[in-house]
Every structure is written in structure tokens, then in C-alpha cells.
């Protein structure tokens, strides 16, 4: 899906937990997530802390979308 959307010329950032799978499939802009059942959260934390985690990942995603790249890039 990432590739097919990007093929239309729209930049896509893939937020996912298993980065090697995303790389194999061919996403170009990759932001690592927290865990498979909660990529943008962490149930062991308070709600406020979770919001911070989510915001940090999404800020990285926006940064990835603004960054010129020539090849697959993981934004850690």
C-alpha cells in the first residue's frame, strides 16, 4: 500500500514496528513504532505519557516527510 500510494507521487511515511519488513516491502520513509499491538502508544504508561510518545513519533513522521531522500531511510 505504501508503495502504490507513493507511486502516485504523494510522499508517504510508514510508521511501523517491524522495520525489516517495511524495508523488504520497499517503504522509503520509515519511522519505527513502539510495539505491534500499540504502535503509537504504551499501555504501561499514563495517558499523558502516552500522548507524549505519540506526539514524538508523529513529529518524527512530519520531519521525515519534509526530508529529501534518495534511498530508503529509517528516521530513528
Amino acid at each position: 500500500m505504501v508503495k502504490a500510494i507513493e507511486a502516485t507521487g504523494i510522499a508517504v511515511v510508514h510508521i511501523c514496528t517491524i522495520v525489516p519488513i517495511s524495508q523488504t516491502v520497499g517503504a522509503n520513509r520509515i519511522v519505527p513504532a513502539v510495539a505491534i499491538p500499540y504502535p503509537l502508544g504504551d499501555p504501561s504508561k499514563t495517558h499523558e505519557e502516552e500522548i507524549e510518545i505519540r506526539r514524538a513519533i508523529l513529529q518524527k513522521a512530519l520531519k521525515a516527510l519534509m526530508t529529501p531522500i534518495k534511498e530508503q531511510t529509517v528516521f530513528n
Partner: peptide, 10 residues
């Protein structure tokens, strides 16, 4: 006219 996509995967 969407400029960018955020795609989340589990």
C-alpha cells in the same frame, strides 16, 4: 490535493 500520507502498521 492531499500532500502527504501517514500510514501506520501494526
Amino acid at each position: 490535493g492531499v500532500d502527504a500520507v501517514i500510514l501506520t502498521s501494526t
